[in-house]
Nucleic acid binder design. Structure first.
Lengths: 111, 111
DNA sequence: ATCATAGGTGACCGTATGGTCACATGTCAA
DNA sequence: TTGACATGTGACCATACGGTCACCTATGAT
């Protein structure tokens, strides 16, 4: 556990690394994966992946549960929503989400 | 401009620093501030603040416009919404946002 | 023109961060 | 109980990042 770090500090630092975002993507696709399962999808040693999962857990973005010798990992989206609510108020939410969807659609048309 | 960095890389890295989040908070409160104005609220030299604003700009979280010798800074919330949409789908959005609001309310009661 | 104001650049330094490895613990199956 | 499997710890190294400074450019007021 790191000292002098607030909750949101941990969340944003956790999201700052592309490997950790990739892990969240995999768990968003399907929950309950083990370390070894996740490791198989990355060009990295088990130790690197383990460190990343720990950071995600300490940020509350991932919750884990043991099952025998395996450890199952689940995505917790609440901290993500809190980021949203920090800089997007109820009044602008509709307009901004429409813009975001438009951007996504345009990029899909390009590809 | 940093090499080998994707758009979302820039956004998440930009959000990873507490000073930069503080700057976004100030701009969320009131748009169109200048560098010197923002510097006055921070215990840091102008150069540090300038670097941070540059990172936010390159991430698209802040857009700036010149006005005479001043440079006005504005918050752009679209990248924030895109983060939200990446890990929270339409079906779970209602439930998650309710949980997030509950958490905020509970913390406000504590204080 | 002069001077103060507002913003900008490049180099520099200490520390935090990502990644690996040697080694260790706990669990299931035969 | 032997061995293979799944996860865990601490030390270590290279690099990225936050912050400062000496120096520079441009705009506005008098």
């Amino acid at each position: 556990m790191m000292a002098g770090m607030t909750d949101d500090d941990r969340v944003f630092k956790a999201l700052a690394d592309p490997t950790r975002r990739f892990l969240l993507d995999r768990l968003f696709e399907r929950d309950g994966r083990t370390l070894t399962e996740l490791e198989a999808e990355l060009e990295m040693t088990r130790f690197g992946v383990m460190k990343h999962l720990r950071v995600l857990e300490e940020a509350g973005l991932v919750v884990a549960r043991r099952s025998g010798r395996a450890k199952l990992h689940f995505l917790n989206p609440v901290p993500i929503r809190l980021i949203h609510d920090r800089w997007i108020d109820k009044y602008t939410e509709r307009r901004v989400s429409a813009l975001a969807e438009l951007k996504t659609e345009l990029e899909e048309e390009m590809a």
